[in-house]
Amino acid sequence: MNKNDVLVRLTGIGKDFDVSPPLLNRLMERQDKVLLKAVDNLSIDIPKGKTFSLVGESGCGKSTVARLTVGLYRPSRGSIVYDAIDMATLKTQAQIEPVRKRMQMIFQDPYASLNPRWRVSDIIAEPIRAHKLISGKSAIDQRVAELLVQVGLAAVDRVKFPHEFSGGQRQRIARALASQPEFLICDEPTSALDVSVQAQILNLMKELQRQFALTYLFISHDLAVVYHISDFVGVMYLGRLVEWSDKRTLFQRPWHPYTRMLLDAIPDIEMSGRQRIPVAGEVPNPIHPPSGCHFHPRCPYANDRCRNEVPAPIQKDESNVACHAVQEQRLPDVAVTGEPADVTTSG
């Protein structure tokens, strides 16, 4: 990938959470500090104007990566470079502010982000006022109306309260767009939506991306949604990135044994008779993760090397994979091809 095309570069980032029992107990029971490595040595490049998605089991660290990327958490290790600016070098509020407003986050928790006592216009105008983007009431009103229309709502909706009309996620997107960001971090933006609204929101997000050349970091546990929206997909397991590539390669020719398990666990809406294979084995304890390759207790290809040595990512065909078996070429190639048929009768 050409260096100039990269908008966001995460290099070897890590985030530890202190999950020790309270200090006093610790002293009395002579325990050490307990750290949870929520993100461990993770590197990704997010190209301008593209969508990079993260997938992986609950608790694998996706939201933590999102929060690190927007600066809600400070990384314990590694660097975050945004459009050639190393975020660690920004110290003062005045330095951080201009960069922060270029990125916006749309959250996972649908109940957290819209204040029910504020009118829609105030909710959307808030970032405009906070970043002092526009001044003057009528200019702000006009901008709010414009944003509402952009996300498929009506300008008159601005006087309403959030609960007075459907389209909560559109309101959130309008709010996120208010500071004219170029990078949106979307943490499960459609997971609380029903499928018909989800389709509208995904179509809207693609449309906005085209129109404003937006770059997305997208997080979802719905692999079909990820397939639809993404250009690139990274698979996380217990804080580490285990495989990443362009989306077609990842879904059609997955290499990492965990990626393959994840794809096998996709719910079968066609009910073609294929038995959904739940990911085998226990979800390991992130506080004391397995040695070597974190996936080894659940992996059918694990050997002694896997138990002792952390696999480094290598390039394998079109994909990037961190797996000893792949590197040792003892993993069978399983290309999945063919498009599934339509799920319903046509009509």
């Binding site: 499928v195 389709a199 995904l202 693609k206 319903t344």
Partner: peptide
């Protein structure tokens, strides 16, 4: 209901679901 939806709404609902390895630029939306 999933395979032979009779009501036009159910039908639209079923068609708006993205499917893995099924490339479409836009999802069918109601």
């Amino acid at each position: 209901v999933i395979r032979h939806a009779q009501h036009p709404y159910t039908h639209g609902l079923m068609n708006s679901i993205p499917v893995v390895r099924h490339d479409v630029e836009q999802l069918k939306q109601i």
